[in-house]
Design a binder for these strands. Structure first.
Length: 284
DNA sequence: ATCCCGCCCTGAGCGC
DNA sequence: TGCGCTCAGGGCGGGA
């Protein structure tokens, strides 16, 4: 569910409310939530207890909390994960998976995840960049992201442009919503062959990706339901600004044509039939 | 090496 | 009411 803007909203909240605090206890309520932490839940709790969180970082849709030990807690929200700050006396959430308490006795950090596609792990020595996510590309808001490298890599891909936008090793942070939004802005159908894009077209597309991500962060992300919320349980409001995603049958904000929905990668894709005509040739 | 598919889960909404 | 089906914002492993 969460893409870069939603994860960045969570990152900012964690940075405000968790950085500088020392972990007093860790309770793993569901083993699947730490399945990527191979040593298991007892080890997970033991290495984190007594550690101080020194910041909160993000690459694409991954978050990590560097610790004073040089290790890090690395996490992914999957489709339905939430990181919430809750008073100690707040009732446990139905899908509470991991609870952290702090030595200051303040709000707990809770990892709540209905579908359990998300998870947490300790990354040994991962404070600067967890090795577990070294294969994830920088995101387009990262100051060290290289536009020219991305454009060149995109134009080498023998696949459809939407598939390439969703490839987290090419650029990170873009998911189904923001891919469709950027393609709509760029007036490109997602089935266009990536290696058939001209350099200027690829650069324009990247510009639209960057714009829509930035605008969505300002809005606090996109929340269709209670599954995506910030660390204080509040929804973002970028759903009001969507031009394509989820708008099947509604008029295109540019030309008035009804937005269409198509199946792609076992997911829905939304586009304007007039502004984003299907390519005649698709990649093989 | 590159690309693509199936799968990992739970719950909401819908038609019957 | 209840059943069964479809759908949901992601990423990985493994096969082709």
């Amino acid at each position: 569910m969460p893409e870069l803007p939603e994860v960045e909203t969570v990152r900012q909240g964690l940075d405000t409310w968790v950085t500088g605090r020392t972990i007093a206890s860790v309770e793993v309520r569901h083993p699947r939530a730490i399945r990527r932490h191979l040593p298991g839940d007892a080890h997970f709790a033991a290495v984190l207890t007594g550690r101080t969180v020194t910041g909160v970082s993000r690459r694409g849709k991954y978050l990590w909390l560097p610790l004073d030990s040089g290790d890090a807690i690395v996490g992914h929200l999957g489709m339905s994960g939430q990181l919430l700050l809750q008073p100690a006396d707040a009732p446990d959430e139905t899908h509470l998976r991991v609870r952290f308490t702090f030595t200051d006795g303040g709000a707990q950090l809770r990892f709540v995840d209905q579908r359990t596609f998300g998870g947490l792990a300790v990354s040994e020595g991962g404070a600067v960049l967890p090795g577990e996510i070294a294969h994830i590309a920088r995101d387009p808001l990262d100051p060290l992201f290289s536009d020219e490298d991305f454009v060149a890599a995109l134009r080498r891909k023998r696949t459809e442009v939407k598939r390439a936008l969703l490839d987290q090793t090419l650029l990170s942070g873009v998911g189904n919503i923001y891919a469709d939004e950027a393609l709509w802005r760029a007036r490109l159908h997602g089935a266009r062959a990536a290696d058939a894009l001209t350099g200027p077209a690829a650069r324009r597309l990247l510009g639209h990706v960057r714009d829509v991500l930035r605008e969505a962060i300002v809005a606090g992300g996109t929340s269709f339901d209670a599954l995506y919320v910030n660390v204080n349980g509040e929804s973002g409001y970028f759903d009001r600004s969507l031009d394509a995603y989820g708008r099947e049958g509604l008029p295109c904000h540019r030309c008035g044509t009804a937005i269409r929905r198509e199946q792609f990668m076992n997911r829905s894709s939304y586009s304007c039939p007039r502004c984003q005509p299907r390519p005649r040739r698709t990649p093989r």
